[in-house]
């Protein structure tokens, strides 16, 4: 299966003041997909994004965007991409329309091109009503929509979004997700950073989990979850000394993948909960081992994240350059 590649990142590295923000990253983004860089603050995802949009030069390795080198062909790369920075990258004193007019000149559009494209974009992001109000009167969601309109102004082949829903309320978030999906429908390749697991899970076709400047896992969210080895059944056993006995009994049951003892019970990876659950309960019954609590869940992206980085995405960690 070889899909057309939009972005090819090869052994990319970036060091600031002796801190390795990005360390030997290699990945590819396929044409037409939504690709997510997922990681906690300071993981290196923003640095990676900045290299891809030619704002930073890598210290080692290379990034190729539609066949163009991010350093040598920076100017041509800039013509083919759109960029949506984080929310506050807006001039409070300019109106929404003036933002677009400014960018139209910076992308060297002719007056006629600008005159047709700007109203279209304002309509697309539903900002027609507010187009002539200064941006300082906009809500967070409206600013984000303006950001997206700005990103789409050059009619880009690839759109880069930096934390597109950071700090937005739930409704605005869902709106933005719809917009991002609509871009994919229009054939635009989307690359975004996020530190929201649910966003990566629901929006992205493929994700790269980045931590400490390195890729820890890469693939479609569903693949990554399957890769963890099946659904998880967690048992809490009343008498802790019976855990070992129960583990031995469960291990050989059908549809069981792996059994690990935890502090007060067992974590059992199962292929099919329909088969495994009755068998597990029966085994516990047979041993007259009383169960206090049974928890069953499909692997979430949290679990993928923890499995690959050894910690939860919410855990605090020393902040490196990620501004």
């Amino acid at each position: 299966m070889s899909r057309p590649v939009a972005i090819d990142v090869s052994h990319l590295g970036k060091t600031y003041d002796k801190v390795r923000a990005v360390d030997d990253l290699s990945f590819q983004v396929y044409t037409g997909e939504i690709f997510g860089l997922l990681g906690p603050n300071g993981a290196g995802k923003s640095t990676t994004l900045r290299i891809l949009i030619t704002l930073l030069n890598p210290t080692s390795g290379s990034a190729t965007i539609l066949g163009l080198d991010s350093v040598k062909d920076a100017d041509r790369v800039r013509q083919t991409i759109g960029y949506v920075p984080q929310e506050r990258a807006i001039d409070r004193f300019l109106t929404g329309r003036e933002h677009l007019e400014l960018l139209a000149d910076l992308y060297h559009l002719s007056a006629e091109q600008a005159a047709t494209r700007i109203p279209q974009l304002l309509k697309l992001v539903e900002l027609e009503q507010q187009a002539d109000r200064p941006a300082k009167t906009y809500s967070g969601g409206m600013k984000r929509k303006l950001d997206i309109a700005c990103g789409l102004l050059p009619d880009p082949k690839i759109l880069f979004l930096d934390e597109p829903t950071l700090g937005l309320d739930v409704q605005s978030r869902l709106r933005i997700w719809d917009h991002v999906r609509a871009m994919r429908e229009r054939g635009i390749t989307v690359v975004m950073t996020t530190n929201y697991l649910d966003e990566a899970d629901q929006l992205c076709d493929r994700i790269a989990i980045i931590d400490g400047g390195r890729i820890k896992a890469l693939g479609a969210p569903s693949e990554l979850k399957i890769g963890l080895g099946g659904d998880l059944v967690s048992l809490t056993v009343r008498e802790h000394d019976r855990v070992e006995q129960l583990a031995a009994a469960v291990k050989h049951l059908p549809a069981i993948r792996a059994v690990t003892a935890t502090a007060n019970g067992l974590d059992i990876r199962v292929d099919s909960p329909e088969k495994a659950l009755p068998a597990i309960l029966e085994a516990a019954n047979r041993l007259t081992c009383q169960l206090e609590f049974i928890d069953y869940h499909r692997p979430r992206l949290d679990d993928v994240f923890i499995a690959h980085t050894g910690r939860s995405i919410k855990d605090d960690q020393p902040k490196t350059e990620d501004a």
Partner: peptide, 13 residues
């Protein structure tokens, strides 16, 4: 500080 400069510099100017 607010990232507007990055937005400007990401354009082919």
């Amino acid at each position: 500080e607010n990232g507007f400069l990055e937005r400007l510099m990401s354009t082919p100017i």
